[in-house]
């Protein structure tokens, strides 16, 4: 089937089988390997991307379902050489270790902060509940999102996550 999908601002037209999963389209047709596959059943969230403004699990969506949609992946989050505040937060607060869940975690966090500029710790945890991390115990991920939220609100981000690494 012919699909037309805008990914990180660039429009792509491709011929795909109906069964091709969106995550495989991104990774293998477009070569955007930042979006990962960690499970089969829509639990781990490593494949999280933002489709038409809404974060979803791209391993549980067919490419043909995304026909005509706008998709944002981790490769499209930074503004050129300038990191997104969420990316900066993960770097500053050691919000990643092995990095495999990180692209999905970042996409969920970006979407969270776009709809809630000042989330509580509980709201942050609920916002990333669909993204499993095996390395961090989520501690520094929560801090990273707090850092990013403060930065996006124009506050001092270091104060927002002062407990990091303590």
């Amino acid at each position: 089937m012919e699909v037309s999908i805008t990914v990180n601002g660039a429009k792509h037209s491709s011929e795909v089988e109906p069964r091709l999963l969106l995550v495989h389209y991104l990774r293998e047709v477009l070569g955007l390997t930042g979006t990962h596959v960690g499970c089969d059943t829509g639990y781990c969230g490593a494949c999280t991307v933002i489709v038409d403004g809404i974060p979803i699990k791209s391993c549980s969506m067919l490419t043909v379902q995304a026909d005509g949609c706008e998709v944002r992946t981790v490769e499209g989050v930074a503004n050129g050489p300038e990191l997104h505040p969420v990316q900066e937060g993960f770097w500053e607060c050691h919000g990643l270790q092995c990095g495999f869940c990180t692209p999905g975690m970042i996409m969920s966090s970006v979407a969270l902060l776009e709809r809630n500029a000042n989330p509580s710790e509980t709201e942050i945890r609920q916002g990333i509940e669909g993204n499993l991390c095996r390395c961090t115990g989520y501690h520094n991920i929560v801090k990273s999102v707090q850092y990013a939220g403060a930065k996006m609100r124009g506050e001092d981000p270091k104060g927002a996550s002062s407990e990091v690494a303590s």
Binding site: T33, G34, V74, E75, Q87, G99, F100, T102
Partner: peptide, 20 residues
Amino acid sequence: IVRRKEDPSLIQGKGAYVDD
């Protein structure tokens, strides 16, 4: 405390795991 050297790659989806 030193920020990690590996992170700029990983947070931008540039980390190359085997399947990449």
